[in-house]
Design a protein around this nucleic acid. Structure first.
Lengths: 209, 209
DNA sequence: AAGGAATCTGGACAATCGTCAAGACAGGGG
DNA sequence: CCCCTGTCTTGACGATTGTCCAGATTCCTT
């Protein structure tokens, strides 16, 4: 119906993505509760009516935004994982990226935790949020597995456990950074270092020459 | 002005608390974004106009609710901490309470994480949320300290670290429970057990007879 | 160039929000 | 007893929201 016949290609999809990118900026600034369709449109080069041409519904738009967010952030640590050849190099690189993303993508992280909270009240958000949560867990698990591999041990935890631990510290640091505490980033790095040191104590002791 | 002269006592404060309790129920069900003053009033025995007699503002009401929430949940683990005489007894009791509160106070926990997310976008919420966060950190720290004490070791972590680790796992379990995964509670308990076992490995090995 | 489909605009709609104020009700001190 | 003050109800207000639609505009095919 609304889709292409003249434009067989994904001109339609392209504009959807373009509008969703605009929406993500607004959502990151204002959060879910305060974001309106008119505000989203005014931060783009289109009028507010066009949103209902590309999205059936406000929730349809937001769900699409959430999925778009996922696609962008999932491979954040892949380069570090692949290029590192020692445990320390991997840990340092990972912690660097961790602090970097809080500084440079803070609105997006705030939005993510906001939407994840909303998913507990809004049924329609639950499934897309679950998928992203799983993707993030995989992302963390790849780092942990590589770290254990470089230490020549097997990771003594589950993927969910690793994700839960890291996510709790990350969220705490994001709140601290948002509140203007400058030591939030280095504190996060120190904490993760401490946890890793404790969890991989055996391997780290035996590998120390 | 609005306060008491005839009623010198805290009849005024009493009703504020009563209305805030009603508001907490509604907030727990609907979340911050979808909760309206009329909905709050309709879940109480009063009309919607009375809310502006006891609260200057919607945010004033919600901030008061948040502080009321704190007062109720902070001493959740005190009995277990004080009555336990062995590390295992403390851990078991703590894990029991942990799962229990997810089941029996799920709406309140959902609301807490919702409001904490909102505080990243709403300046006025930041300070009361920070206070509660600190209180929760203290609550967790009392458990950790007691556990270490019963093991006759010093806890090898900071209060913020302990809180961040546990909160991440707790939040994950709350999401799982909300999504209807029945194993979320036992998974949480297993995960916490695993982390404690890893973090206190030395003490647990030497204390084993 | 012309026509039609795709795209976009801007205004209008009903619904709902927080807020407010005028008046009804209650109850205790004169 | 009445009146004053604190308490509560009710209805209204302006603002804002998501949604919809009639028409203007653009763009491609023929």
């Amino acid at each position: 119906m609304a889709k292409s016949r003249r434009r067989p290609a994904d001109k339609f999809e392209e504009r959807r993505r373009e509008l969703a990118e605009s929406a993500l900026v607004t959502l990151g600034e204002l959060g879910y509760a305060r974001t309106t369709l008119r505000e989203i449109a005014s931060n783009s080069e289109f009028s507010h009516g066009v949103l209902h041409y590309y999205f059936s519904d406000k929730l349809d738009l937001i769900v699409f935004c959430v999925q778009l967010y996922k696609a962008r952030c999932v491979h954040r640590y892949d380069a570090v994982v692949e290029s590192s050849t020692t445990p320390d190099e991997l840990l340092d690189g990972f912690l660097g990226k961790l602090a970097e993303t809080i500084v440079e993508e803070a609105p997006m992280h705030r939005l993510w935790y906001d939407l994840r909270s909303q998913s507990m009240f809004e049924e329609a958000l639950r499934e897309p949020v679950r998928v992203i949560d799983q993707t993030l867990e995989d992302m963390v698990w790849r780092v942990v597995c590589r770290y254990a591999e470089l230490l020549d041990v097997r990771p003594m935890m589950t993927p969910a456990l690793a994700y839960g631990l890291l996510d709790g510290l990350f969220q705490l640091a994001l709140h601290g950074y948002t509140a203007g505490r400058e030591d939030a980033l280095t504190t996060l790095q120190d904490e993760v270092r401490a946890v890793v040191a404790l969890l991989f104590r055996d391997a780290l002791e035996t590998s120390a020459v």
